[in-house]
């Protein structure tokens, strides 16, 4: 892999009024790695990205390294990063071509060298034929690709993306997410992107750092995060898993809607979760765990059920196919012991 290694050492950020946006954090992004910073709003992910960019300085003691170079005090314009902004921040007074070429222009690169690079990047980002368009003539997806092309044209050491898909409407987002994943992988450039959408993070990132309240809760590859969450926050935020809370006794969990054999030996774990798609619906007669369907959303490829009376919070269940029970139906629930997540 080519690219720059990015390191944060003990980076924290305290804003005026003593708001701790980011607690002291260490983080290494390997050359060519695509890291997703995932978390709810206010978790510190954008602050961390802006520290990497040089738009915020970390509290004293924090350090940012690009390979072995300490860039902590280097202002953004000399840091050689590429950044895609949430609003895209395309310059409205310049054409597409001028936007993409701007980073080369301010570096004093002109003539055919600039034109060649601009053309190369534009065709890589599928912007052929749009060179002379004005920014306000572009669709949302085109704007996003112009923002990306502009950021990568000067061959930055690190590419930073702030919620690159959030400005698009939902219908477009899924297509462009997959497209962005392909383009980013093709660049083989160290990249960090911020998102609050777990499917976005999973589709694009090599590894994901899940953040909450100014800390990284867990950093792992998407499948590891999903299969083996280390904290209850990761389990519920990333997988949308259901928390099962009840009385634990001899490997059995006593819930409002019945009893569940957990196969867990010894002490009661702190948290027990079950993923939505691991629950099976059975006949209520004779089932050891029962509940009532209070919500049903048919989504084509699958159906989402909300079931009450099982434990404190309503249980969310995802079913394949269309022959799901109706609202008001009493259902039995089969929760396989080996699908439980507990820690």
């Amino acid at each position: 892999m080519t690219g720059t290694e990015l390191q944060l050492l003990g980076c924290a950020k305290t804003f005026a009024g003593d708001t701790k946006a980011l607690l002291p954090t260490d983080l290494v992004v390997k050359p060519g790695e695509i890291l997703g910073l995932l978390g709810p709003s206010g978790c510190g992910k954008t602050t961390m990205l802006r520290i990497m960019a040089g738009l915020e300085t970390p509290d004293s003691g924090g350090k940012i390294l690009f390979d072995d170079e300490d860039v902590t005090k280097v202002p953004i314009e000399h840091r050689s990063i590429g950044m895609v902004f949430q609003s895209y921040a395309l310059f409205p007074n310049m054409s597409v071509q001028q936007n993409v070429g701007y980073g080369l222009k301010v570096r004093g690169i002109s003539g055919s060298e600039r034109d060649d690079r601009v053309n190369e990047v534009m065709s890589f980002c599928r912007l052929d034929g749009l060179a002379d368009r004005a920014i306000n003539q572009l669709s949302g997806g085109q704007r996003q690709r112009v923002a990306l092309a502009r950021a990568v044209a000067p061959r930055p050491r690190v590419l930073l993306l702030d919620e690159p898909l959030s400005a698009l409407d939902a219908a477009l987002r899924d297509t462009l997410r997959d497209e962005l994943a392909v383009i980013l992988r093709g660049l083989s450039m160290t990249a960090v992107f911020v998102t609050h959408d777990q499917s976005e993070a999973m589709a694009i990132a090599d590894t994901i750092a899940v953040m909450r309240a100014g800390r990284i809760e867990q950093r792992a590859a998407p499948e590891v995060l999903y299969r083996d969450p280390q904290t209850d926050f990761v389990a519920s935020f990333v997988g949308g898993a259901n928390r099962l809370s009840g009385r634990f006794e001899n490997g059995q969990l006593h819930l409002e809607g019945g009893t569940l054999k957990t196969g867990i030996e010894g002490q009661q774990p702190d948290h027990i979760f079950i993923r939505q798609e691991d629950i099976r619906i059975t006949n209520p007669d004779g089932a050891s765990l029962r509940g009532k369907v209070i919500g049903r959303v048919y989504l084509g490829t699958h159906t989402k059920l909300t079931i009450s009376g099982v434990c404190e919070a309503p249980l969310m269940v995802t079913l394949q196919g269309a022959d799901a029970p109706k609202i008001g139906d009493l259902v039995g629930l089969d929760i396989p012991a080996n699908s439980l997540i507990h820690f």
């Binding site: 960019a53 738009l55 202002p75 953004i76 314009e77 000399h78 050689s80 990063i81 590429g82 950044m83 902004f85 949430q86 609003s87 921040a89 395309l90 310059f91 409205p92 007074n93 310049m94 701007y102 980073g103 301010v106 570096r107 502009r150 950021a151 000067p154």
Partner: peptide
């Protein structure tokens, strides 16, 4: 949009270049 200035800086523009290429056209 403050991101316009940040974007120009992220692309390497010096303060006077930001003024000329982004701020003044925006204020025109």
């Amino acid at each position: 949009d403050p991101a316009l200035v940040e974007a120009a800086r992220s692309l390497g523009a010096a303060p006077l270049q930001v003024l000329r290429d982004v701020t003044l056209p925006g204020l025109a």
